[in-house]
Design a protein around this nucleic acid. Structure first.
Lengths: 349, 349
DNA sequence: TTGAAAGCGCTAACAT
DNA sequence: ATGTTAGCGCTTTCAA
C-alpha cells in the first residue's frame, strides 16, 4: 500500500523468512539453503529492493567509499593525466561496489580544516593518493589506520603500497629508439627531479645511454626546474641549446608537457623538429597529437593505473593483515614524427 | 577510556546536556541559547567529535551526496572540459557539506543494470548532468523525484533547470572580431548541430554576420558531422575548402577541438593560418595554447559552471517547491594568433 | 539453517 | 530552551 521504498523487513515478509536470513542472503554468507536463498532473491526482485547504504554502513561500520586524494597542483594541471587515473578508479570501484570520493588537498597538512571531510567523518574505508604529495599527508592517513595506495608516486621511507608504471624501461625504450635513428648526442629534460617517476626515467636514460655507448654529459641533463609543465620544458630547452658550443641532436623529455615546451622553444629558434633536434616524450597525453610534428612518446596506461589501485586497495581493506605491494604497469613506445621516423613508421632493424 | 571514536552521547555527557540539544547545535537550529551552544561546541572540540554521516543519513533520510552524471562519450573525451566542470562542482559542494559521486552512463537507459548505483540505492539527494545526454535519462531521474540540474545542455521539452554559458554572445564576439580583422567571408564549423550549445553558437554566428552585413552562405556552414572532436573539425574543413571555387577566408569553429582540427587541415594543404585562413574557436581549452598558431577563442568558465550547478541544485534540495531556473555564465573573447592579430594584441577601433 | 532481538549513531517528534 | 524517546534500516551476536 505505502508508496515507501521497500526495506529488508518487506523482503522478509514477502519471502516468509526473517530479516536476518534476508541479510545473510544480501551479504552472500554461507549457511543458507539454496531454496531459501532463491526465495529471498525472488522477493528482492519482485519488490525491486535495494539495501540502503546508510543503514548498512551504520550497522556494519564500513562506509562503502574509497577516498581519492589529489594535490591542488595536480588537480589544476591542465593535462588530464591524473584525471584519467581517477576515471579508471571510478570504473573499477563499481565492480567492487564502492563509491569514490574525490578531493584535493594542499601541499601538506596544516590545519584540521584542510583535512578532507571524508577522513574526519570516517567516511572512507581506504584512500588512493595520486601523484607527488607531501609526506605529512601519508602520516596523517597512516595515523588514522586507513589502508592506502599511492599511484605514480613513491615514498620509500613510508613503506606504503604503490601502483606505478615501468619508468625505467620506458626511458630505455625512448633512448634506444633515438639511437637507432642515429643519434649519438642526447639531452635529458627532467624538470623536477624530486618526483620519483622523473628520477626513475633519468636513471633509465643514463643506463640505456651507457648500454648504447652513447655520449652522456651531465650538462645535457636539465633537472633543476621547479615543475614539469610546458614552460619548464621550454626553459630547460633554452638552457640546453643556448650558450653551448656543442649541443645534443636529440632530447628525451621526461614527460610530454615538457617535450611540447621543448618543441616550442626549438621552433622559436627557427630550428626544425626532428631535422635539427629530435624529441621524445613520456606519458602519451593527448596534446602530443596536436603539436607539429606529432610527438613520439612512451605510452602509460592511465586508466589501468587507477583500476589497479582499486584492486590493491580493496585487497587491503578486506584483509586483516594487509600486505604492502608494489605494482607496475608496462609501457610501450609510440613512434610519431617528432623523432625523425618517416610517416610514423618505426625504424626496422 | 575506550579508544572508540566519540559519539553524540559522549558530547552530551561531556557538556552536561542532552543528545537532542547537541543535535540542535550540530544542525545549526535556532532555539538554542548562546551559552548552551558554546558549551556544546567546546565539548565537540575537546573530543574531536565528528558526526557519522551514515547515522545522520539514516535518521534524517538524506544522503549528503550529489550525483554527477556524465555520458561515456563525454567522459572518455580527451579534453578536460567536463572534467573541469566536475572539479568546480566538487569544490563548491564542499561549502555545502556535500560529497559528489561521479559516474558515467551509456547513451540511454536500457537495463536496470546500467542505472547508476547511487540512484538505485537512493544515495544522492540530487543530480547534476553535464553535457548532451539521452532524454530517457532525464525521465528516469524525474520519475525518481530527484532534483536535477543540467550543465551545458538543454532539453526544452523537459522543463528542467540548467546552467550554461552565453553561447550566443560568444559566437557574436568571435564573428565581430573576425570582421574587425577585415574578413568578409566567414565559414562555420559546427560538427554535431544536435547539441544545443552548438546550435546556439550557430544562431549567434548568423546573427552577427547579418549585423555586420557580411556574406553568410549555407554552403560555408558545416554542421553535419557526427561529433565535435578534432577529426570532425578536420573533416569539416576539408569539405569547406575543397571543391569550391569560392572559399571563406576565416572560420569560426563552434569549439576549440574542431578549430584545432581545422588548423591541422589548413596546414596540411600548405596554407597558412592566419594569413590564408583565420580561425577562431570556442571553449578555451588548454590545447589551444599548444597549437601553432595559438588559437583565438571564446573563454568559458568551466569550474564556475560546475559551482553554479551545485548552488542551484542545493537550492532545489532545500526548497519544498523547487523552481526551474536557467543560469548563464558570461563569456569573453581571447585573442591569440590564429585570427591574424599581431602579438596577441586585440585590434583596437 | 533460521529467527529474535539488541544495537549502530543520529534526528525528530513530543514533552517539559 | 532543553530533555526523553522512538525510530531510521540494516548487521550481528546469540538462541533455537
Amino acid at each position: 500500500m505505502s508508496k515507501h521504498r521497500p526495506t529488508i523487513a518487506d523482503v522478509a515478509e514477502k519471502s516468509g523468512l526473517s530479516v536476518s536470513t534476508v541479510s545473510l542472503v544480501l551479504n552472500n554468507k554461507t549457511n543458507v539453503s539454496p531454496q531459501t536463498r532463491s526465495k529471498v532473491q525472488e522477493a528482492i526482485a519482485d519488490l525491486k529492493y535495494y539495501p540502503r547504504g546508510n543503514a548498512r554502513g551504520l550497522a556494519s561500520r564500513v562506509s562503502g567509499n574509497i577516498g581519492f586524494i589529489l594535490t591542488e597542483d595536480h588537480f589544476s594541471q591542465s593535462e588530464p593525466f591524473y584525471t584519467k587515473i581517477f576515471l579508471g578508479t571510478e570504473f573499477e570501484a563499481r565492480n567492487y561496489n564502492y563509491y569514490v570520493l574525490l578531493t584535493t588537498v594542499g601541499p601538506s597538512v596544516k590545519e584540521e580544516k584542510q583535512i578532507p571531510r571524508f577522513l574526519l567523518e570516517h567516511n572512507v574505508d581506504g584512500v588512493i593518493i595520486a601523484g607527488r604529495i607531501g609526506s605529512s599527508w601519508l602520516e596523517e592517513i597512516n595515523e588514522r589506520g586507513l589502508p592506502m595506495v599511492l599511484v605514480d608516486f613513491d615514498s620509500p621511507r613510508h613503506n606504503v603500497s604503490l601502483v606505478g608504471m615501468d619508468n625505467h624501461s620506458g626511458a630505455r625504450l625512448a633512448v634506444q629508439h633515438l639511437c637507432r635513428e642515429g643519434h649519438t648526442k642526447i639531452g635529458f629534460i627532467g624538470g623536477d627531479i624530486k618526483h620519483p617517476s622523473i628520477a626513475a626515467r633519468l636513471a633509465g636514460f643514463r643506463e640505456e645511454c651507457k648500454f648504447q655507448k652513447v655520449e652522456c654529459r651531465r650538462e645535457w641533463e636539465s633537472i633543476d626546474e621547479h615543475g614539469t609543465g610546458v614552460e619548464n620544458g621550454a626553459r630547460a630547452a633554452r638552457k640546453l641549446f643556448l650558450n653551448r658550443n656543442q649541443i645534443p641532436t636529440a632530447v628525451f623529455a621526461a614527460n610530454d608537457a615538457m617535450a611540447i615546451g621543448c618543441i616550442q622553444f626549438v621552433k622559436s629558434q627557427k630550428l626544425s623538429v626532428p631535422k635539427d633536434i629530435a624529441v621524445v616524450g613520456f606519458d602519451n597525453i593527448e596534446a602530443g597529437l596536436h603539436v607539429d610534428p606529432r610527438l613520439t612518446t612512451v605510452n602509460v596506461q592511465k586508466e589501468e593505473l587507477g583500476a589497479l589501485a582499486v584492486r590493491r586497495l580493496v585487497e587491503m581493506i578486506k584483509s586483516e593483515t594487509p600486505a604492502v605491494t608494489r605494482t607496475f604497469t608496462p609501457v610501450e613506445l609510440i613512434v610519431r614524427e617528432s623523432c625523425g621516423a618517416k610517416n610514423g613508421v618505426h625504424h626496422v632493424d
